[in-house]
Design a protein around this nucleic acid. Sequence first.
RNA 1: GGGGGCGUGGUGAAGCCUGGAGUUCACGCCGGCCUGUCAAGCCGGAGGUCGCGGGUUCAAAUCCCGUCGUCCCCGCCA
Length: 586
Amino acid sequence: MSQYRDTAAGTIGSEAVGSTVKIAGWVARRRDHGGVAFIDVRDASGIVQVVADPDVIDEVASLRMEYCVAVSGEVRPRPDGTTNPDLPTGMVEIGAEEIQILSPADALPFMLDDRVEVDERVRLEYRYLDLRRASMAANIAARSKATAAIRRTLDDLGFLEIETPTLVASTPEGARDMLVPSRLREGHFYALPQSPQLFKQLLMVSGVERYFQIARCYRDEDLRSDRQLEFTQLDLEGSFWGQDEVLDTIEQTLVAATEAVRGIRLTEPFPRLTWQEVMDRYGSDKPDLRFGMEIADLADLFESSEFGVFTSALESGGAIRGINTGVRDFPRSKADELTELAKANGAKGLVWMVVNDDRSLRSPVAKFLSDAEIRGVIDRLEAQPGDVLLLVADRWKTAVTVLGALRNVLGRPADHEDLAFLWVTDFPMFEEEEDGSITFSHHPFTTPQDVEMMATQPEHALARAYDAVLNGVELGSGSVRIHDPELQRKVFDILGIDSETAERMFGWFLRALRFGPPPHAGFAFGIDRLVMILQNEDSIREVIPFPKTQSGVDPLTGSPTLVDDRQLAELGITLRPETRTKLEES
RNA sequence: GGGGGCGUGGUGAAGCCUGGAGUUCACGCCGGCCUGUCAAGCCGGAGGUCGCGGGUUCAAAUCCCGUCGUCCCCGCCA
C-alpha cells in the first residue's frame, strides 16, 4: 500500500487474525496499565486497538494523544470478555511488534472527542485538529459523497460541467459585490460572482444545451448560521427547457445526494405548491412541511363581529387568520413573548385563546366575541380543550407571515431527522420595497407568466420562477429565462431601468440575446445548506472545512489582513482618512 | 445599522442575582504506581491579569458604563 502502511486501521476484522499488518495513523487514546498499554490508532477509515508491552517497545512511554504513528504487528483475537461491540474492529487487536513515531504532537488545545462543545472560535483557530473529530470527518465525507452523486447523475444525463470566470464585472443589482482591484487597469475592479447566472445563459446561446457547475459564489452581506461570504452552489441550465424539465432534473440530483448521504430513497415527485398556497397555508415561502399547524382563514366568521380590531381589519381589506398550536402550557409570560414576536414581524398585536373544558375560551378578547363566533373559531381550527389558538387580524401578507413565524417557533422539530422536500412555484414577478418602489423578486431575467398582466398589474403578475425547500430552509431557486430582447426591455421598463441604464449594465448580455438564443431555464441550489440538513447540523459552518466567523474573519489564517502600502500603491489605492484614523486607534 | 446570549487555569462548567482571600467539579497537562483496558484506575503536582478599559465601594469575577471578541436573530442576502 505504501512504505508507511499496508492496511487501513478501521477495516481490520476477524478474517485478518493471524496476519501481520502495518498501519499508520494518530493516537486517539492511550491506556497505559504499566505492564501493558492499549493504544487506539485512528486513520481515515476508523480505529483499531493496538496492544503493546512497554518493556519491549520503548516508544510506548513517550506516546501522547494525536502523535502520528506507524505500527506493525500481528492481528489477533481479543481474549474472552475484552471485545468491544462499539467498535467495528472490536473483535480483534494488533499485538505491536514495532511502533514508529512519525511525528509528535503538542498538548492539544481542546479534546478531540464530542463530549464537550468547544468554543467555535477556538475550533476554527485549530480547524485542522477540529476536522480530525469523527463528526467533522463525517461531514467532510458526506459533502464529497453528495457532490460525487450529483456529478454522476448529471454526467449520466449528458450534462457538461463547465467553469465560468470568478473575476467578473460588478453589477449594482442584487447583493453587495465582493470586489477585487485590478493592477493592470488601475482604479478598476473585478467582482467575484454572486452566481454564474449570466455566463450560464451565454453558454445556452453558445449551443451547450446542458450545463452544470459546482460553483463557488460570493455575496458581501452579513453572515448567519446558514450564510457565509463564499458558498457553493450546484448551478444548472438547460436549453429548450421549461419548468418541468428543470424540476425533474434537480429532483434527480437531490434524490441522488440524499441517497448517497442518508442511504434513503426519497419519494418522487416532490410536492409542488404554489407561492400563494404556501403563503396562505404556512405563512412562508419556505415552509417546513414536517408538521401541520396550518393557517386557517377566519374572516367569514367575523364579518359582523362586535370586536373592533377584527372588523376594522376586514373593512380595510385585510385578513383574519389563525393557527391551532395544540395543547401546551400557556402562562401569561408565554403570551407576552409571542405577542412581542408578532409585533417584531410587523403585526399590531396578537390574539390568543385557550380552549376551556366546556369549550368556552380563556382569552383577553373573549368578552367581545359572540357564542357563534367562538363556536366558529373552535370548529374551523378543529380545537380541543387545552388547545392554544393564535389569531392575527392585519394586512393579508402581515397576518400570514406573522402566523408563519409563530408556527415555526412553536412547531418546528429540533433536528433534521425527517426530510420534507418541496417545490414552491409561481412566485410573484415583483415585490414592493419599503419606499413603495418595485423590484424583482427573483432576478430581472425571469420570464413573466403573462406579459399583459405584467404591464398592467405588475404587483399581481406571476413569474416562471420556483424554489426548492427542505425542512423550512430555502435550498435554491430557478426560473425560465427571458430569451426575447424585446421582453427583456419591457421588464427593465417596469423596474424603472431605462434603456440607457440597461445598456450600460447589461448591454453585452442583451446583445447576446439578439443572436438566436434558445428558450432556456435553470436552477441553482446551495450545496452547503443541503449537506448541513442531510448531516443534521444547524450551521453551515459545520459542513465547510474552513469557514469564517460572523464578522467575516478566519481565526486560523487571520484573514482579512492589512496589506503593504506598496501593494496598495500598485493598485492605485489609498485608504480613506477616516479608515486610517480608525486603524490607528485600534 | 439594531436586539439578545456568552466571555472564569489548555478545554468545558459552577460561582455573579444577594460584593468579603482565585474557591469548586470534570477533561487535559506533568510525575509516580499499576498486565486487559476501551472516557482505564489510583496517588501526587503544576497551571488563572475572572476578555480589556473606566467607574461605584473600605472591598469587584460579582454592581454600573464603555469597548473588544464570539454566537443567535432582525435589517440585508436579485
